[in-house]
Design a protein around this nucleic acid. Sequence first.
RNA 1: GUGCCAGUAGCUCAGUUGGAUAGAGCAACAGCCUUCUAAGCUGUGGGUCGGGGGUUCGAUUCCCUCCUGGCACGCCA
Length: 550
Amino acid sequence: MDGTDLLRAELRRAAQSLGAPDDVDPVIERPRDPSFGDWATSLAMVLAKRLGTKPRDLAQAIIERLDFARAGISAADIAGPGFINFRVAADVFAEGLRALIAAGDQYGRSNAGNACPVNIEFVSANPTGPLHVGHGRQAAIGDAISSLLGVTGWRVTREFYYNDAGAQIMNLALSVQARVRQLGGVDAAMPESGYHGEYIRDLAQWYIDEHSSDPNADDLDAVRQFAVRELRREQDLDLQAFGVKFDVYFLESSLYSDGRVDDAIKRLIAAGHTYEKDGALWLRTTDFGDDKDRVMRRSAEKGGEPTYFLPDVAYHITKWERGFARAINVQGADHHSTVTRVRVGLQALDMGIPQGYPEYVLHQMVTVMRAGEEVKISKRAGSYVTVRDLIDEVGRDAVRYFFLMRKGDSQLVFDVDVARSQSDENPVYYIQMAHARVSGIFRVGEIDATAITGTDVDLSVLSLPEEQILIKALLDYPALVAGAAEALEPHRVATYLHDTAGKIHLWYHKAHVLNEPEPILRARLVLARASQLVLRNGLDLLGITAPERM
RNA sequence: GUGCCAGUAGCUCAGUUGGAUAGAGCAACAGCCUUCUAAGCUGUGGGUCGGGGGUUCGAUUCCCUCCUGGCACGCCA
């Protein structure tokens, strides 16, 4: 509800009376320059050619057929090549502000999702090391998307998938084993593609401390379980420090232990899209648009094990069968190649899963700069910046905002030195400061903000340009949230908040509240309360705190 | 070679799904604290929207092509 529904309906009616087709859908937007009006439409320019008239003439004809009262406007005029600019009737803003405050922390919510269950998988780091900056970006984006879908009416499950089976885990176990033996004075070699991070040495030491009966780490299975458990614990601490909570932790190993991987093979074979070649079992993914067929199960001489893509398919079958009509995977762009394969694998089952299932939100890589040089992120080489490092250095709120302020599909340069040295000038403080300032009005004035309603207050005295601009921005919030949720783009919220915070600072600077004459005081308190609520709700979506004072 | 993403101010990035004079932050320069927080505000300078074609009333946005950077293309995960 952004208040344009009535206007849109009126425009449609007027256009149709002039011969426009039934499906005409007028685009209504904010004019670039606020002095043009409150809303604008390009309708006349879009329709002019089809109706065989000049844009400005058509605009005039449309205006003449508009019922201003029903559309909730007080004026309409033609500008430029054929725009129609509208002024909203004064009481529309006043009613909007009252509705905003009445909604409180519910302001911005909608019901687009209709309580439909949606699974959002993110982070899903292998338990082979601490979470690095790339995981941080993913955690911030995934959590924010979850929140966005939550407030737009979806029933959200946040899920973390542990790849705790397979070759990488074996690598991890062998790496720890080698370090244990080295600590014991044995000249043990690290595995070919082992993990060289410092934390492996720590793990080895802990293993020795806790397993006195196995000083040489001969029990590889015990080493593996120990390492996975400890690293999961570390990752949990990282996520906790970042304020991210998951509803479900799904273990890849469970897919094997409860037979779902085998089951997936049987179902794919039964569906008839498989064949054997060179001793391996293949899936004819080219039938579904892939550029080449994929191996599902290796040949005997290669071990006869399923390839990674099979548990991926089995895993996504569980999402579908657990009732998630919608599944969203937030992953780094380096996982791009899995998108087609997972979807194609699900299609090959012929079990009615939609073609675009699951949806993917791929974010581009994070480049870390330190001391003017790029830090290569490599778990195996052991050089990278962890999420915990960043949080310790610049704070949780700033890290969250930094990861969310850019579009996911552009690369992100995280300069650790800049983030640290300029933490006081990080944009997030600008937003939080706006919240602290309007909160300060209530604190200093000893006024209960929650008692503000706006009823019985004459809001027409909010006539400063800064006030009109701010009111419009606040009333845009629900549409902004709906758009960001639909596009799965939380950075829009970050951009909006920064923009709106600027309008609040401007207003705060220009217009005093306390000690003003009663009518102005009362009206401005309403605007302060509305500003506070929008900032608070928006920051909450991004997982960022809204301090009352700074 | 193929596919995906990106290229916008000195730097980092937005740009409401094709609209009006392309915007922020940082950096630079000049100002504003007896008044609810100066972590703020005001002003100045800064652009071939990577290049070239096309589509149309209108293109940073859509299509084609080329250039540059990133990622991915395995019986690795």
